[in-house]
């Protein structure tokens, strides 16, 4: 059970631009994977291939063993949910509850089931107080939680979060972490695109670095965040604590605050 990109090349049809070149990537069920890289590296393009919004120009994308070319976007999206970077692209109902219910009603789910799912997902995403509000009257960062709720309510197996921490404050990031813990506890897969290295280091086990229209390196976060040469090539940075640890000569691998403090203490003795 996995999402697999096999020798995939992608060209935007109306612009004749190659966004991805012969990329190979496999994401197994239950994993937490963060995709990092500079703007324009191909991150969003790659994840949109995973739920069939983008169709590969060459190569194949498999979702749980099924070639996505044989399915429509909607069919694949029932397994692979995508939370758009711009919530305004996703929202069109005039009320938060209606927005969340919309897809379930189109699927002709029983009303009792819909009511329960909507209530649970609003609690999980912390937007219950806005349930009767017009989506455009709620702040943009909280609108993001509405779009997450709208995808989670459909019970997908894989969830793609495109820049979930953009514009979020401390409480928002904590809420996001809570949501992700819930998703992982359900045995589901989380794939994120993020520029927030501290958030990635804290919440994701595996990091895929993208650059030059391909995957540059792929591995566990500890090994990736200490490959400073590769990170520089991809024009991304490691975590703040890792960079401090490197500069002051701490030999052990440092990602988080506790590790840096432990390293400094050891240096002092």
């Amino acid at each position: 059970m996995a999402i697999e990109l096999q020798n995939v090349t992608f060209q935007y049809p109306d612009a004749n631009i190659t966004a991805l070149e012969n990329i190979n990537l496999m994401i197994n069920k239950g994993e937490r994977v963060a995709i990092i890289g500079q703007n324009g590296a191909g991150k969003s393009t790659a994840v949109k291939l995973m739920n069939n919004i983008n169709k590969p120009t060459k190569g194949t994308v498999f979702v749980d063993g099924v070639d996505t070319k044989t399915k429509t976007t909607a069919e694949v999206s029932r397994k692979v949910g995508y939370v758009f970077q711009n919530p305004n692209d996703q929202i069109f109902c005039d009320d938060v509850r209606k927005e969340i219910r919309y897809v379930l009603e189109r699927q002709k789910m029983p009303q009792e089931e819909i009511k329960k799912r909507v209530k649970d997902v609003m609690e999980l995403t912390g937007i219950r107080e806005y349930r009767n509000t017009h989506p455009y009257d709620i702040p943009l960062p909280i609108r993001r939680f509405l779009t997450i709720a709208s995808v989670l309510v459909t019970d997908v197996e894989y969830i793609i979060l495109d820049e979930p921490t953009a514009g979020q404050d401390m409480l928002g990031c904590n809420q996001l972490a809570k949501i992700m813990d819930y998703i992982t506890a359900q045995g589901k897969t989380i794939i994120t695109i993020s520029h927030d290295m501290e958030f990635v280091a804290e919440h994701f086990d595996r990091v895929v670095v993208m650059a030059h229209k391909n995957v540059l390196i792929d591995g566990d976060k500890n090994s990736i965040f200490h490959r400073y040469d590769i990170l520089e090539e991809a024009k991304v940075r490691s975590t703040e604590y890792s960079l401090i640890g490197k500069e002051i000569g701490i030999k052990e691998e440092v990602l988080a605050l506790e590790e840096l403090v432990a390293g400094i203490k050891k240096q002092s003795t």
């Binding site: 919004i53 976007t73 069919e75 069109f92 897809v103 459909t154």
Partner: peptide, 30 residues
């Protein structure tokens, strides 16, 4: 954008002209 995102939420948007009209109508006014 909305059609793409609805498609990404599992609502069938692809198909013949009839399917396209049927899927556009509920979202057009909003």
């Amino acid at each position: 954008n909305v059609r793409e995102s609805q498609s990404a939420r599992g609502i069938e948007m692809e198909g013949n002209f009839g399917v396209k009209v049927k899927t556009i109508i509920p979202i057009l006014f909003p």
